[in-house]
Design a binder for these strands. Structure first.
Lengths: 197, 197, 197, 197
DNA sequence: TATGAATGAGTCTTCATTCAT
DNA sequence: AATGAATGAAGACTCATTCAT
């Protein structure tokens, strides 16, 4: 409501943005509260009015941060489910590819840090499951499609591409790899579950 | 005659083992030289007789770990190339699975840190290429098999499995995932290149 | 209203004073941040709120010391330029002599460390040049007096005295040496440029 | 006698030379026993067979080191004592000037470190006293010449020149300064003690 | 005598967190 | 709610010295 609340929200946002900015430059492990408050121009004490511990901001951040990497599930009006899925996967990879590789690396490092960071993975699997379920609802896939299994399988491939890209950006082209994956395997994998119009 | 030399080697080994032990418990970033020397019962100064900086030990460790994670390419006397490949991939994953998950996590974090660590990936791809070439030589695959492409594809999947396992060990079962991958996709992918006896 | 600011200034001053005190006792190279904070009763971390590195405090100190060592050029109402100059040189030396010898030593070591510390020397030469020029203006020295040359000559002698005093305080008496220098050489050196009333 | 003794002397010398070499590069305070033994290729333990403590070598070194800066008192067959003295002083300064300025700086820093290092100064004063006494013996100076006083006075000037050269090598030309000093003051100072042939 | 591994006190520096203003 | 000075534990690294071989 009031101006005060707005200011408070703005302050909080400043801190998050500063941290976000710093993470890309220095990596998760190497940002200090000092860095954050200096970058945001906010007093150190103020930081602790908003976050009980540094970790809290990091957690907050991961939500903000990886939201950027989330694909919008837009079910195109396309007919062919294979093309729909291919588009989805390419979009998914594009979002990551278009971010800087450093961001992707930080993400890999962060996400593999501990089980508490598995949200993104869970979320991605669920999103893909939803896509498949929409396709089922739209009578484009059979009701017995093993939604969860396929989602895991596809996402595993996606994560593998991201990972190997981080490892060897010169020899791995993420988008091309996804395209190849789709062309080589998609129809084979989905064949049993397709409903032919 | 090498009592002193033996002791020296033992000391060095103690340090490495202590570090190795601690990494599994606390993770890469959270082990201190103090921890290491206390665990190994060696004086702090001694540490620096063996490693110029803490990083050097970490590097040393990574090398050991990488070595551990290398699969022996043993071409079994099996007939069916699909079974041979499946066995190879399962062996590959078993080596990693049998190491502690913390070790795998450290490896993921380390390997994704920068391009300079891409050797393992290159090595793994090459190893798999060699397997495929052996199969070609043994007249089990056609000579036009796209060796490099397939190797990248399979290894990407493997790396994806490792990665997602690190992220979400409770929902991902690496060995089962590899088996499922093989069952669902191997024959489809290799079909065009199989030579039927 | 500046209670906090006042405290901060006091803290900073405590640190400087503690360091100053320690330097006299132990010498430049032998004081540690630990010593300083223990002496001043301030927490170690606080030190680094005020000085980015130990060196910075040392530099700060040098500035203070240099300031202390600067002689006030007060042109006395004396008639005889020789007496005026003698007084000036004795004053100059007294300032240094009255500081502890350790301080002088630190100064010698600091100032000779590199060219970047040559300000004090330049400043001293200029100050003496100004004295001579005032004497010219007051019609006590001829206008063709080689101001710069004489200034360098005299100051070289002064610096030599300080240096040898630091080396051998038992055999060198700085004030007496300056007096002797004046008595033996001043009239001879200035003779050509004196204006007799 | 034996080979053993020779070796021992050689080892000792190696250590001194290595330290000597390092001092010019890194300064008195910054050389470590480690540096010394690495440079000389001798084992660390061996160092302590020759010197009880690091300081002992430093002391040893100062003797060797500054011996280099000692002028050979060669009484030329010149007639005029003023010219003889001038030549001596210029030689004195040349030795220092011809060494690198860094060496001179180290020397200034070292020599001013504490009273224990006053040998060089004492030695220089005595050498000059000897010169003056030779001139008295040769009937070129009167027997009532204040040998010690003049020696101190001249050497103070010399040390002043060295010191200011270290401080401001760009504005101070040691040799020229000595020449100027001699030309301006030598005859005036010696006048009372000259014996005219 | 020569060796070099072992030692541990000591050094600088960082940083998350607290708290009086 | 905002501030920023104060804190002290913890970290990496150095180095003169000892001592068993």
């Amino acid at each position: 409501m009031g101006k005060r609340e707005d200011n408070a929200i703005a302050t909080r946002q400043s801190l998050i943005e500063a941290a976000d900015h710093l993470i890309v430059q220095k990596g998760y492990e190497n940002i200090s509260v000092d860095d954050i408050v200096k970058t945001s121009g906010i007093a150190k004490g103020t930081f602790y009015n908003y976050f009980e511990r540094k970790e809290d901001l990091i957690f907050e951040l991961s939500k903000e941060h990886f939201a950027k990497l989330n694909t919008q599930t837009i079910l195109s009006e396309q007919d062919d489910p294979i093309i729909i899925i291919k588009k989805y996967l390419i979009d998914f990879m594009s979002v990551i590819f278009n971010s800087k590789i450093e961001l992707a690396r930080q993400w890999v490092r962060y996400i593999s840090f501990s089980e508490t960071n598995s949200n993104k993975w869970q979320f991605d699997v669920q999103s893909f499951e939803q896509l498949l379920m929409k396709l089922i609802d739209a009578d484009k896939l059979k009701v017995n499609t093993p939604v969860h299994q396929l989602a895991q399988l596809f996402l595993t491939e996606m994560y593998g591409v991201i990972f190997t890209w981080c490892i060897s950006p010169k020899t791995v082209d993420p988008i091309a790899t996804v395209k190849r994956f789709c062309d080589l395997q998609l129809s084979a994998l989905l064949q049993p579950y397709l409903i032919n119009a």
